[in-house]
Computed example of a mutant assay.
Amino acid sequence: MTERLRRRRAPHLFIQTDTGTGPVVILVHGIASTAVTFRKVVPLLAPGHRVIAVDILGHGASPAPPDCEYTLDDHVAALAATIRALNLREPFVLVGHSLGSLIATRYAAEHRWYTPRGLRVARLVLVGPPIYLSPTDIGDPWVRARVTAYLRAYEFLRSNKDFTLANAAVLGRLLPKGILELNENTWTPFVKSLEHCIESQTMVSDIASLHVPVDLIYGALDAFVAPGSLRVVERMRHVNTHRVEANDHIVRSRIARVLVRVIDGAPAATTRTSGGQTPAPAAG
Rank of each mutant, 00 (worst) to 15 (best):
A149I: 05
T148I: 04
V147P: 02
K161R: 15
F163P: 07
K161T: 09
F163I: 11
D137M: 08
P135W: 12
L151N: 02
P135L: 13
I138W: 05
F156I: 08
D140T: 05
A149F: 04
T148Y: 01
P141Y: 00
D162I: 07
A145H: 13
N160V: 10
P141V: 05
I138R: 06
R146A: 07
D137V: 04
S159H: 13
S134K: 11
L133T: 05
Y150N: 02
T148S: 15
R152W: 09
V143G: 02
V143W: 04
A153E: 11
N160D: 14
S159C: 09
K161H: 13
P141L: 08
R146H: 05
G139A: 14
L157Y: 12
P141E: 05
V147A: 03
A149D: 12
L151Y: 01
F156S: 12
Y132I: 03
L133H: 00
P141W: 03
R158F: 07
E155S: 15
S159F: 08
F156D: 12
P135H: 14
F163N: 08
A145N: 13
V143Y: 03
A149R: 11
A153C: 01
V147R: 02
I131G: 01
I131K: 01
E155T: 15
P141S: 07
T148R: 04
Y154M: 13
F163E: 12
P135F: 12
V143Q: 09
L157W: 12
T136M: 09
R152C: 07
K161A: 10
R146M: 08
D137S: 10
F163K: 06
A145R: 14
R144E: 03
S159V: 09
G139Y: 05
R152K: 15
A153Q: 10
R144I: 00
Y150G: 02
R152P: 04
V143L: 06
R144L: 01
K161S: 08
G139S: 07
F156W: 13
T148P: 01
P129Y: 03
L133P: 00
A145M: 09
I131R: 00
E155R: 13
I138Q: 06
N160F: 10
I138A: 09
P129N: 08
P130K: 13
I131C: 08
I131D: 03
W142R: 13
Y154T: 02
F156L: 14
F156N: 09
F156M: 11
P135E: 13
D137N: 05
L133G: 05
A153M: 11
I138Y: 06
A153N: 11
L151E: 01
R158P: 06
A149V: 04
T148W: 03
R144S: 01
V147C: 00
K161D: 09
P129A: 14
L151T: 01
T148M: 04
Y150K: 04
N160P: 12
Y150V: 00
I138V: 15
L133F: 02
Y154D: 10
E155M: 11
L157M: 11
Y154E: 10
P130F: 06
Y150C: 00
A153S: 15
R144T: 00
R152I: 08
I131N: 05
L151W: 02
R144V: 01
I138K: 07
Y154W: 14
G139Q: 12
V147M: 00
P129I: 04
A145P: 10
P129W: 02
K161M: 08
L151I: 02
T148L: 05
